[in-house]
């Protein structure tokens, strides 16, 4: 077939190809125009440049030296902690599922860009690392629990003896009209004037105690922000008690694990308080108790990470940073933590 016959036979295909080419050219041109500026690297005397300003330059090495004093220690310790904890604990399916679920929630709540920059600021790769970050948090939390359970048992005993800690929950049935009555001796007494509805609600909760799960009752009936969390108020001791109304803390103080109070009247209404944990074993299973220990003894975790790292063959090779970490721990311990 000669050229003329070829064109005659395939003229329509050729026309479509030309239009496709034109369209692609326009589209590509538009994309190129809107493409953000790309920057080329440059080197001088074998060193990468960050910028050039006339004859003056600023190299990557100089920027590294400028950022090192204020940023190296925290970046390296976070990365070291991440490497140690990840190697010390296997990633379970449960950890992965929890991490994936948390990651999805966080991205939908805050947006990927925000998450991306926050994670990068912590030394992670960005939002692509979010699931790994949550897995690391779970492993880190488990490591912390294991430290206090296994290696620091005496420290925990001493903390419990000193602070009489517990984990508590409550169910609040609000009463709008609570009167403060002054007695003849000058003391005051609270007197509740519940509506029929408020009384009925309280009676219903009391009738179900002991037969239904406390946390579920709290979710269904409690009228404060802890309801969605099964009524959990978390860690409680004498220091924390000062933040509650006196009627509440007077009832909560003597509770031991598993005990539930009768309805206790405060200016807000009736509280039914439960002690969820007061024994060592139950306390150590609770994250808010662990958090209290971590807050009280911050160097315990740091020293444990270093010891575990040595055991696993993970070492901080930068002598300067290694010394800074030791100095930070020593200073914290001198301060009595």
């Amino acid at each position: 077939m000669d050229q003329k016959e070829l064109i005659k036979k395939y003229w329509f295909v050729g026309l479509v190809a030309v239009f496709a080419l034109i369209f692609l050219g326009i589209y590509a041109g538009s994309e190129i125009k809107n493409r953000p500026t790309t920057v080329k690297t440059a080197q001088e005397d074998g060193k990468y440049l960050i910028y050039r300003l006339g004859d003056d330059t600023y190299t990557a090495d100089e920027l590294y030296e400028d950022l090192y004093p204020a940023n190296a220690l925290s970046n390296v310790f976070v990365r070291y902690d991440y490497m140690v904890v990840n190697k010390a604990y296997e990633t379970t399916t449960e950890m992965n599922d929890i991490a994936s679920s948390n990651a999805q929630y966080l991205i939908s709540a805050y947006g990927e860009d925000t998450i991306d920059s926050e994670l990068k600021a912590m030394g992670f790769k960005g939002s692509e690392d979010l699931v790994n970050y949550y897995i690391y948090l779970q492993k880190s939390n488990q490591f912390l629990k294991d430290i206090f359970t296994n290696d620091q048992s005496e420290l925990v005993d001493s903390f419990i003896a000193e602070n009489n800690p517990k984990i508590i929950s409550h169910i609040l049935v609000k009463v709008a009209n609570v009167e403060t009555v002054t007695n003849s001796d000058g003391t005051t007494t609270l007197v509740a004037h519940p509506t029929e509805e408020e009384q009925a609600k309280l009676d219903e909760v009391v009738s179900k105690l002991g037969t239904e799960d406390f946390a579920e009752l709290a979710k269904q009936y409690s009228e404060d922000s802890s309801a969605s969390n099964g009524g959990s108020l978390g860690y409680y001791d004498a220091t924390v008690a000062a933040g509650y109304v006196p009627e509440f803390s007077a009832a909560a103080d003597p509770l031991t694990e598993g005990q539930v109070t009768e309805p206790v009247l405060s200016q807000y209404g009736y509280h039914i308080i439960r002690c969820d944990a007061s024994t060592k074993e139950a306390l150590l299973a609770n994250d808010s108790f662990i958090a209290q220990l971590q807050s009280k003894y911050p160097t315990v975790y740091q020293k444990a990470v270093l010891a575990k790292g040595a055991e696993l063959g993970i070492e901080i090779a930068d002598a300067d940073i290694a010394q800074q970490i030791q100095d930070v721990i020593a200073t914290a311990e001198e301060g009595g933590n």
Partner: peptide, 27 residues
């Protein structure tokens, strides 16, 4: 841009080192 001697280990590990370049990229 890359730092000179970027492969220098800041943290050594059997599973792979954390290097000076990694630290610079974190900065």
């Amino acid at each position: 841009a890359k730092v000179t001697d970027g492969e220098t280990a800041i943290i050594t590990s059997p599973d792979g080192n954390y290097t000076k370049q990694d630290l610079f990229d974190a900065f």
